[in-house]
Design a protein around this nucleic acid. Sequence first.
DNA 1: TAGTGGTCTAGACCACCTG
DNA 2: AGGTGGTCTAGACCACTAG
Lengths: 242, 242
Amino acid sequence: MVARYREIKHSIQEDILSQRYRVGEKIPSERELAVQYGVTRVTLQKAMNLLEQEGFIERIHGKGMFVTKVIEDNVYMLNSGTGDSILGFSREFGQQAKITSQLISHQLILAPQPIAGQLEMQANQQVHFIRRVRLIDDVPVLIEDSWINSEVIAAIPETVLEHGSLYQYIEELTGKKIKFYNSVIEGDLFSKDLADLLSIAAGLPMLKVSGVTKLEDGTAFNYSVSYNRADMFKIKNSWVGK
Amino acid sequence: MVARYREIKHSIQEDILSQRYRVGEKIPSERELAVQYGVTRVTLQKAMNLLEQEGFIERIHGKGMFVTKVIEDNVYMLNSGTGDSILGFSREFGQQAKITSQLISHQLILAPQPIAGQLEMQANQQVHFIRRVRLIDDVPVLIEDSWINSEVIAAIPETVLEHGSLYQYIEELTGKKIKFYNSVIEGDLFSKDLADLLSIAAGLPMLKVSGVTKLEDGTAFNYSVSYNRADMFKIKNSWVGK
DNA sequence: TAGTGGTCTAGACCACCTG
DNA sequence: AGGTGGTCTAGACCACTAG
């Protein structure tokens, strides 16, 4: 069951990305688009709200809707809290570059207290602990540690960890979509052991992103921390007043 | 003109903050709340969407709506892209601590090329350049550079820069609300000159946040860059699937 | 089966902007 | 005045969860 407003959102998003609607240009009014897509304004507005939140368009009361000028960049953008693809590193960048993973560690451990809390588990339960180095075009760019509730995901094939998308595997295994990602961004310096994994010098700056991932039924199944080379990543962020 | 769904959002937000609805607890259903507030479900849902995006509640299909467990912290949180108060440092933290500013520089200059681009200005126009050190309880915690289109804001009293909220001043002066804030988060190390302004050592980690601010009529009036001590700030971020 | 959130319709009126 | 986005109503049906 795909919601109509999501289809419309993707359709208009494509029209923007393919330059059918040009940067800075006015796009048709809500009323026109509603007729085009055969829906009511309310439904169309839900689509436009998404496009606005994700920074594709700007809406100005009384004037109309305009395609946002997009700023290109030479570093990788982590789209925080927007888009369809906060759903893991593989799916986010797999289109534009060659993504690989190097599995450093994968073991079942007793959940450490703070992580059990984040995952809303009882104490003394087991979690998968996974440490991976992620590479873009064979350059190691970040380290990702994941703690995954083993009662939700019993087994994780190493082939998924090395070559596939963990989140995609989990969506297929559980039959539920990933719904929620709550993260905190911090700045820090690379310690020696982390720096060694990336073959860089200790003391270089990093962006640390940590957060809980939940399924659509509310189950918290994953807590992860990623240590990103600050010279290779930025995080984009957009706020639209109400 | 205050929208009804925003009033309802604030009302329920208050009920959560005041523990009238407890952490983890189920709150009344959409249909019940709609009756309580005398609105239709559509309007009530707009309120709940905001609360969900801002991390106050979780909604689970078929089950209900629940108050999110809030994670307290010992550092200052910059709520990226959520809440009512991305609107400047003063208004964000003025409630919980003593905020002061130290004005380092304030001059009219010709807009440098990249900044003129961000502000959608013609070349050779003047902007205010403002550098301030911000202090929380007399501890310098960040440096903020602002470039402000002088055609939008002709004059900026130094008393505002030293003691008031710049954004509040601009909203009152123009009679328009601030609507849009598009930012990019980066990690870096403090250079010597910036570190000196904060009386810290060079080479410590920072979170750098830069972005454009617009009024509700679409006017880009401000471009700013802030250099935040990474040991004192985190950025909170929440993504909710559609 | 009953209750919940998720989506959608077909209208209406308001507030803002431009000519 | 006419067009635009912003808000709201009073319904309806669907999909998911629980007992």
